[in-house]
Design a protein around this nucleic acid. Structure first.
Length: 228
DNA sequence: GCGACAG
DNA sequence: ATCTTGTCGC
């Protein structure tokens, strides 16, 4: 199926169907390899640069990255980010020589109007554990968390259901929004992201993925898979 | 009708 | 998201 030819109403129907496949449950198992995924592009261009960076866990040292370039015409519409970025990320995913235990996606998971943010969407597509880590809220209500490192508050819907957490990754910086993507639960997602935070606002997986796709777009890195 | 609105 | 320099605060 080609997302570029979908209309928003059609995409909405697809999200409602995919929603039934999302599994929000505690992740059982060891994590020795984690990954971060992100996209970069030039303003007004239909070319996107997608990348996935693999890191050893819990050391968080990068061990390789997969970079791909792809054309995309589906516009950015709040609530439908997946239809614009998932295709390219799938290409990068299929190019990985080894799959991570869990993938951290730049965006929300179930903290979405229809519980189908990009992290959940991608997780269902590849049937793999994912967690969403976003820089801004898309959906839900929350109280500002305390200003101490790792303070957090729940992100809820109007009925009081907890969709994720608002996490203060470091003092005096805006918090990050963490929610389960697929095969993960609310607490586990927060604990994992907390373990991925070092000295910056953003957790290492998405921070390094962001750096990689940006360098790729600017020509400092070349496409393909590269061990670190 | 008005405000909110991932990347 | 991207375009961009200096500047204020921990």
């Amino acid at each position: 199926m080609n997302y570029n030819e979908l209309s928003v109403p059609e995409a909405t129907i697809l999200q409602k169907e995919l929603k039934e496949k999302v599994i929000t449950a505690p992740y059982r198992g060891n994590i020795r390899l984690i990954a971060g995924a992100d996209i970069s592009f030039n303003k007004f261009s239909t070319t996107v640069y997608a990348g996935i960076v693999l890191l050893k866990f819990p050391e968080l040292t990068p061990v390789g990255y997969s970079l791909v370039e792809k054309e995309v015409t589906f516009p950015y519409v709040p609530g439908f980010l997946a239809f614009r970025e998932v295709p390219a990320l799938l290409d990068a995913w299929q190019q990985l020589p080894q799959l991570p235990d869990v993938l951290v996606v730049d965006g929300h998971g179930i903290a979405h109007p229809r519980r189908m943010g990009i992290a959940s969407h991608f997780g269902v597509m590849v049937n793999h554990p994912t967690v969403g880590s976003a820089k801004k809220k898309l959906f839900g209500y929350y109280e500002e968390p305390g200003n101490n490192r790792f303070d957090y508050t729940p992100l809820k819907d109007k009925q009081g259901n907890i969709l994720g957490n608002v996490l203060r990754s470091k003092p005096n910086v805006k918090p990050v929004f963490v929610s389960p993507g697929h095969l993960m639960d609310v607490d586990g997602s927060r604990e994992l992201i907390t373990a991925c935070v070092q000295r910056y606002r953003l957790p290492e997986p998405t921070r390094l993925a962001h750096n990689a796709v940006n360098q790729f777009r600017l020509g400092t890195l070349t496409a393909g898979y590269t061990p670190a």
